[in-house]
């Protein structure tokens, strides 16, 4: 009986069909259409002509693209470790169920439910010169306020602060979940050995959640490479493009310069980067499920 249930039947495929049609029409086709566009000189409002790899050459020769790529990489290199470290710290600190910790968990996750535009509004009101919270504070204590949103270096940093504030909830929750899974006997054994808290952390806790750390890192890499709204609204990529991320470059080329072909070519580079990260994620997660089976 079970055999017939498992027997290969075309009709069983009907369960997959609805999703598959969405997948093909809305993801696979645009993916190939994007490649087609990237090989054409085409603007927002009309058909183009074939230019081969011309758009790719132009993208790679564009210092603004290279700068945006570098910004995105720097952003990921700084924001992801911050998110992982802070998330891990909070998870360790709140890994007990009391009133206070439940409240704090809720608090730290709450920013994640806000829209990006609310987040950027909040942080603009913190960072803007003159009226911002930080200016008011620095004037109270008598130090020269920094122009966070318009100084090279600080502007990307400010976008990063807003992003970490916004995204911190998820890593914390994932780490908390992982901490709950560590078998108690490991800790009991450690307690018998009279191990110091630090030793327990480095020898028991961290190794036990190593895969989660890896997974969270990769999820965050994928997410933070797609940075767009925060930078566009808070700094508009400035000053001098020093906070313009890759996705904003694509948006500007496509919708402000009308150069859809070039934007599509730049999109393919973004795709390649995420593809590599996603492959890494796949490898990590399959290793995990094999281990747990």
């Amino acid at each position: 009986m079970a055999e017939s249930y498992r027997r290969s039947q075309w009709s069983n495929g009907l369960f997959v069909l609805p999703y598959l049609s969405f997948f093909l029409v809305l993801l696979v086709f645009p993916l190939f259409w994007g490649v087609w566009l990237s090989l054409h000189k085409v603007d927002l409002f009309g058909p183009g002509r074939f230019v081969g790899f011309g758009n790719y050459v132009r993208v790679l020769a564009d210092p603004v693209f290279l700068q945006a790529l570098r910004n995105s990489v720097i952003f990921v290199l700084v924001s992801v470790p911050s998110l992982v470290a802070l998330g891990l710290f909070l998870a360790l600190a709140l890994n007990k169920t009391t009133r206070t910790t439940s409240f704090l968990r809720g608090l730290f996750f709450s920013s994640s439910v806000l829209s990006v535009t609310i987040v950027t509004l909040i942080w603009r009101f913190v960072f803007i010169p003159g009226d911002g919270l930080l200016t008011v504070i620095s004037e109270q204590i008598g130090i020269q306020p920094v122009n966070f949103l318009s100084t090279s270096g600080w502007s990307l940093f400010s976008v990063g602060v807003a992003t970490v504030w916004w995204c911190l909830g998820l890593p914390m929750m994932l780490f908390l979940a992982a901490l709950q899974q560590i078998p108690t006997d490991l800790y009991e054994a450690a307690a018998l050995d009279n191990a110091s808290p630090w030793r327990v952390l480095t020898r028991v806790t961290l190794p036990s959640i190593a895969r989660t750390i890896m997974l969270v890192t990769i999820i965050q890499i994928v997410m933070q490479f797609q940075l767009f709204g925060q930078a566009q609204i808070m700094t508009n990529g400035g000053p001098n493009g020093s906070s313009r991320p890759l996705v904003m470059y694509i948006y500007e080329v496509g919708f402000m310069r009308w150069d859809v072909g070039k934007a599509a070519a730049a999109s393919e580079f973004l795709f390649l980067i995420i593809l590599v990260a996603a492959m890494a994620q796949y490898v990590v997660s399959t290793r995990k499920s094999e281990a747990s089976e």
Partner: peptide, 16 residues
């Protein structure tokens, strides 16, 4: 205008 603003801004701020 965006390009000029970005580049001239960089020169005025001493980034270039």
């Amino acid at each position: 205008q965006d390009i000029i603003g970005e580049e001239v801004g960089a020169a005025v701020n001493g980034d270039k």
